[in-house]
């Protein structure tokens, strides 16, 4: 069931997920589109997530936004429910208590050990989004696992000290007993500045001709978990199961690439080690069970399904 409406207030609204925003020219959503979007959300019981550009909006926009309960996704260091930073622009001292999305390429990720460690001591929650996930090789998974273990050691100390910072790559799986995917096109839709609906911002950025009718999304069942043959049997519950990445890498929205699965399983397995390490010292999340497995890609065991 649809639950959220993402509204991109401007063509330059901050990208907060896997796909970069290619737009460089400002194009503010027309006020009547904004009003229609808010009205649509109200009439369909949707929670709105407004996505902001890096400049101040006119007052009448702020007034309109205030007419409905919502969340704000803003470019760092602006203030909002979620602040999105590119690695190079992040100032750690400004992040105390915040929910931060940190978007990085693989190369940046591998040298971000200290930055992330420092952030984890500050933020309430850190979401690391890798923007070139499809470039991961199997050889990259070993250093990636080691990097996660390093952050896990720090998180373990924090948790044992009674603080609970969250890092999506490690703590989400530890807390989840069921999948928590992105569910674009099933639980959320995006309204773009051009007044059209998209499955998510990435589809607007890369295929703006592929808008959808929210009342009749073609092949919507293929966006659902029960129609994803690999994901429906998978317990990397924290994985985003990004249908945009799926479409781009395998040409089918319901099938993930090897890279998406292998990266998510490296995180899953690191979460398992973290959970075990915490449990050595304290009772923790007894209802969660992350089993030991011998694969990093559910595709490799599909015969056993």
């Amino acid at each position: 069931m649809m639950q959220y409406l993402v509204i991109l207030l401007d063509d330059t609204s901050v990208a907060y997920c896997h796909c970069d925003n290619p737009h460089r020219e400002r194009r503010l959503m027309p006020p009547e589109t904004l009003r229609d979007g808010i009205r649509y959300a109200m009439t369909h019981n949707l929670m709105i997530q407004f996505v902001y550009p890096d400049y101040d909006l006119p007052q009448d926009y702020l007034d309109a936004i205030d007419t409905i309960d919502h969340h704000d996704i803003v470019p760092f260091p602006r203030q909002g429910d979620v602040a999105v930073a590119e690695n190079s622009k992040l100032k750690i001292e400004n992040s105390a208590g915040a929910v931060v999305v940190l978007r990085m390429k693989k190369a940046e990720l591998f040298v971000s050990g200290d930055t992330v460690a420092a952030l984890l001591r500050q933020v309430q929650r850190l979401n690391i989004v890798i923007t070139d996930l499809d470039t991961f090789t199997d050889a990259d998974l070993v250093p990636y696992g080691a990097l996660l273990d390093r952050w896990a050691a720090l998180l373990k100390e924090e948790y044992l000290a009674g603080r609970t910072p969250q890092l999506n790559l490690l703590t989400d799986r530890m807390m989840l007993t069921a999948p928590n995917h992105c569910n674009a096109g099933v639980e959320n839709l995006t309204l773009a500045p051009n007044g059209r609906f998209y499955l998510c911002p990435a589809f607007y950025y890369t295929a703006s001709e592929e808008s959808v009718d929210p009342e009749d999304i073609p092949n919507q069942q293929l966006l659902r978990l029960d129609h994803a043959p690999l994901c429906r049997r998978c317990d990397a519950y924290h994985c985003r199961r990004c249908v945009w990445l799926n479409q781009r890498t395998t040409l089918d929205a319901n099938t993930p690439s090897h890279e998406q699965c292998a990266v998510a399983h490296t995180e899953r397995n690191a979460s398992r080690r973290l959970l075990a390490a915490i449990r050595e010292k304290a009772q923790f999340m007894p209802e969660v069970d992350i089993k030991e497995i011998n694969y990093i890609d559910p595709f490799d065991i599909r015969k056993d399904f």
Binding site: P229, L251, T255, S257, H258, F299
Partner: peptide
Amino acid sequence: NPNLLRPFLTLDRTT
């Protein structure tokens, strides 16, 4: 490109 074979190799009747 093995990723492009994945949808085919996971196809089943009911889905």
